[in-house]
Design a protein around this nucleic acid. Sequence first.
DNA 1: CTCAATGCAAACTATTTGCATTCGA
DNA 2: TCGAATGCAAATAGTTTGCATTGAG
Lengths: 143, 143
Amino acid sequence: MDRIAAFNECLRHKGLKNTSQRMIILETFLGSKSHYSTEDLYLKLRKDHPKIGYATIHRTLKLFAECGIAIELNFGDGQTRFEPLRANHHHDHLVCTSCGKVIEFTEPQIEDLQAQVAAAHGFVIKRHRHELYGLCSNCAANS
Amino acid sequence: MDRIAAFNECLRHKGLKNTSQRMIILETFLGSKSHYSTEDLYLKLRKDHPKIGYATIHRTLKLFAECGIAIELNFGDGQTRFEPLRANHHHDHLVCTSCGKVIEFTEPQIEDLQAQVAAAHGFVIKRHRHELYGLCSNCAANS
DNA sequence: CTCAATGCAAACTATTTGCATTCGA
DNA sequence: TCGAATGCAAATAGTTTGCATTGAG
């Protein structure tokens, strides 16, 4: 089941409706670079769909998160960002504090160790956040 | 050098002044539970020091972060929290999404793996954030 | 038809700033 | 004395909400 079908399934399950705005937002969200803030997506959509309001986009992104289509991220600038979730493709982030570049990484050993830490404290982990902040190779070279 | 001395050193280095408010805020900040938001600290200080304003506390917490006395955390509720930094005592967090309990953990193997991941991408890591969200043992038992 | 969704503007919350006054070095 | 710090209130930024209208099922 792809993510569009999964979203429709989630809407049905919640008794919500599938509007043209939601489809437009979903397709744009899935089809482009990751790490959108509401404002990013609003500005991008405004070109082709100037009638879609900021509030609708924000509500829709929150809905994506509820449906498991997206996760919320916060990289420490004031904005909440949303990232499309790929099934079976969890990853974490390297964030360059100089140029803003974001690289995704996966490290199964870290995931295993996390699980051990949680178990040692009796925690049942639902999700996690793991971000490394520093300078990317370019910025490190130029400083 | 303890953290109060380190803070004074930082003030001197920046050409700033050590006021009674800053000392009161620092002592309260260091001397109690971790993970203060500006509001938490404001409410706590208000009892004994009702004249200290919200803005002063917020500016002071930011200053602590600049001086390396504290780090900013964000657990996903709308508030930025500040945690006192202990020299040589880095740790990460387990956060219970049900009761709000926060447990600190340290896992050297994870730190090593992080360093390897960063190196593989040419990143120079300055800091990181690693948080595991889920249910603590109590909340997991009662659900 | 009915109830959810939308778009707009207004409300909120956390944070930040301007400025007159106070105070440390 | 002089510039930084404070306290207050007002401004901002991001997010959320109320409500009349529109539209999906």
